[in-house]
Design a protein around this nucleic acid. Structure first.
Lengths: 348, 348
DNA sequence: TTGTACGCGTTATCAT
DNA sequence: ATGATAACGCGTACAA
């Protein structure tokens, strides 16, 4: 026999379709006995409302969509893992959508996607999360929206963020405490606030310590391994050579480590490197990368919980802490190597 | 104004709903003028049939689902990227589902997923792809199924495969050509045919060359970096130490490289390592990993094309070639280091 | 070749 | 508090 429909339940319970529907949707105006009777029948039959039919009536699908603009972004695995964990045992499915057109066409393509597939909720990855027009569109379609990234200037709802600027500055402080003075920075995609804030944090801290933060110490990357490699090659041939590099993400930090190896520079003895994110690659390269952990999985989990919550919570932004994880690519500056070897070893 | 529905189109074209429906679904029995007239109206209005309504009527959603049992599998990014590329400009969306229960409960959970979300097509990742019952279930739900993995014994439709056994043997041949004799192997998840075939390929080639393939040269892993690391630690302390390691995937190969670094073993001078897959990590570690490239993205692309093709193609299995990519972790065995240094440098 | 009437399984409207 | 009936938008017998 086929699955029971709402009509079967209604007949079995001796009530109308609509009453069963009310039970399903937790309508407040129902007598206790009626509700309990229907709920018993539902439990006995194992009835599950057909999501497609509900979707047609409600004009929205039981889908939570992850929307990104980089299909090969290594962060996607972790984000999805967090989302899937939160979606477990829920009535929603995870849908992944790739928006690869330019920023202008993106709005239209995103609208088409929303209108066509009508997801119940959207999780926007950076840099898409920073386009307010995209978030605005989701509202128009009665679709909730969560955004991953760095904290925006103006408080707005749905943001899941980390204190990138402060974290970046803290990493520099640690390097300075370990005696480093010439600290270079590899920046990330300019179109992400996250990357810009990480650079600002670096600049903050360098200024605070009165250290040189000239253009020779800052190289532009685009969040990719290759760009980190190229940037490090540039940084490592200036003289005096930086004794430490902070990269805006782990991929680029890994690229920097790669470049150092290629140049025969010993890590961490001759060069310290700090990455950002604690992506899987961080613990897999040699030496294992010291990095600032961003709890992407937990963040995605929280984002989805917010998206599928029965009532839209008016939480503005959800802050997650970051944490510096010391591994093998950082060491105190050797007195012999530094231009001002005053500082001795200091456990940060 | 709202989006036009099929009724609006019918009215504008002066025909019935059904005629418009026939145009949409390419029914053969339609007069040319009628079809053209309707098509013109559709183009002018930008009408797009509502997928939810179609889903309700057809009892299947316009979703292609990727189903896996490991939310953190690094291969997922590439597979998804290939799928998304193939799905671009199609009416289907990508849905990702995680089956984390044991093999017995998996069948039931999978059935629930199929019945509840009714995807049009499924792409099964290994080891799920090897459970014939799962594939069988998809058929029952009128859902197409593509399976990623290693070639099964009996030809069955929907498989997207690589010649893992031969590829593994070829890698060993290359190492032997480079003078290696003590070649170790790190095996993968025993529940994947893919991993078993890679091990068999290793055994084939070692036997063919009359080389020792005893238990001291084979360590069990589970496809994870950590397991590769642990396995290599075991392999590297036996005496005489193997001069080369073939790992069943890149994650474990990276773990082996990690272990070698930790033990102060120089790569590739004192140890050669070959991985499998050409995952992103292969080119990011130092030295860059020599590996057997498995074109996951292309395979996923082909799988999706097969799933969304207008008519179910009766292609049995779709073979993809693999390719050994020489990078930095392989070198000829030094005459001084080998126990039988007869072979000189040979460019493989 | 084209149209009519109904089904898909649920929610919403508006009565009672 | 509950129910009859109409949406929701499209596909399919079956009739014409």
């Amino acid at each position: 026999m086929d699955r029971p429909t709402i009509i079967d339940i209604a007949r079995l319970a001796g009530v109308s379709k609509k009453t069963v529907s009310r039970v399903i949707n937790n309508s407040p105006l129902l007598s206790k006995p009626t509700r309990e009777k229907v709920e018993r029948i539902i439990a006995e039959t194992g009835f599950v409302p057909n999501p497609t039919a509900r979707a047609l009536a409600l004009k929205r699908n039981f889908l939570i969509a992850l929307v990104h603009d980089n299909a090969l972004d290594p962060a996607l695995v972790e984000v999805q893992a967090g989302m899937l964990a939160a979606l477990k045992h829920s009535e929603f499915a995870l849908c992944v959508h790739f928006l690869d057109c330019g920023p202008n066409a993106a709005l239209r393509a995103f609208g088409d996607f929303l209108e066509y597939h009508r997801p119940s909720g959207i999780l926007l990855m950076p840099p898409l999360s920073e386009q307010d027009e995209l978030a605005g569109l989701t509202w128009e379609f009665g679709c909730r929206c969560a955004r991953l990234g760095a904290k925006p200037q103006t408080e707005s709802p749905g943001w899941i963020v980390t204190p990138d600027r402060q974290a970046s500055a803290d990493a520099v402080h640690r390097l300075v405490l370990a005696g480093h003075r010439r600290i270079a920075f590899i920046s990330g995609r300019e179109d992400t606030r996250c990357a810009r804030l990480r650079e600002l944090g670096y600049l903050d801290a360098m200024a605070e310590h009165g250290l040189d933060r000239g253009p020779a110490l800052i190289a532009a990357g685009d969040d990719s391994f290759e760009s980190g490699y190229a940037a490090a090659e540039l940084l490592l041939e200036v003289s005096p050579r930086p004794s430490a590099i902070l990269a805006s993400n782990d991929e680029m930090a890994a690229g920097a480590v790669h470049a150092a190896h290629k140049s025969g520079i010993k890590l961490p003895a001759e060069l310290s490197v700090i990455g950002f994110d604690d992506a899987p690659i961080a613990s897999r390269i040699w030496p294992p990368l010291t990095t600032i952990r961003v709890p992407l999985m937990e963040m995605a989990h929280a984002a989805v919980n917010q998206l599928i919550a029965p009532e839209a919570s008016e939480s503005t932004t959800h802050d997650f802490p970051v944490e510096l994880i010391e591994r093998g690519t950082t060491a105190p500056l050797h007195a012999s190597a530094g231009e001002s070897g005053a500082f001795a070893f200091q456990s940060g």
